[in-house]
Amino acid sequence: MPGLEDLYREIILDHYRNPRNRGELDAPPAHRVEGFNPLCGDEIIVYLDVDSDRIADIRIAGQGCSISQSSASMMSSAVKGRTTEEARAVTRAFKAMMSIHESSLDGEPDGLVGGADGSGGGDGDVKLGDLEALRGVVKFPVRIKCATLSWNTLAQGLDEATEPV
């Protein structure tokens, strides 16, 4: 049985205790997107300030467990200042990591995901960095939705923010 240390890596607990980019932005002009996990009641609100295809600012509000909150915090750090395309690539890479079958976990090279099974869609060079710490969540299938909640919400926000006018 996987242990608690597989799930709650120190960097996860750090983001949980000291969440980055916590707060709100005025919407509009910022885009405000809500995400819910109906199973556990977690809810997350992502505020996106997209300026000529670049995420100029991002804020996270809402409440949830340590995994959903730390994943949101890490997500905000990972995409802030990036172009929307880069943010989408990180999102795909992160979600690919979250969908790896448990049996393929051993021997997975650190830092590189996506591409190999085609699901990464050419994001093989995306570096997940700190986000790698969330890899252990895959061993706890019921918690995967906690980790992906903020990313799904971000993806929805990016779609809305970059819709052709």
Binding site: M1, G3, L4, L7, Y8, L39, C40, G41, D42, G64, C65, S66, I67, Q69, F140, R143, C146
Partner: peptide, 24 residues
Amino acid sequence: HPHDVSQVLDQDGVCVRAGHHCAK
């Protein structure tokens, strides 16, 4: 968070329900 509490409890074989219990 109750999810985190119940995750620790699960390690000890203690089964509790974490969530909104269908009573939002």
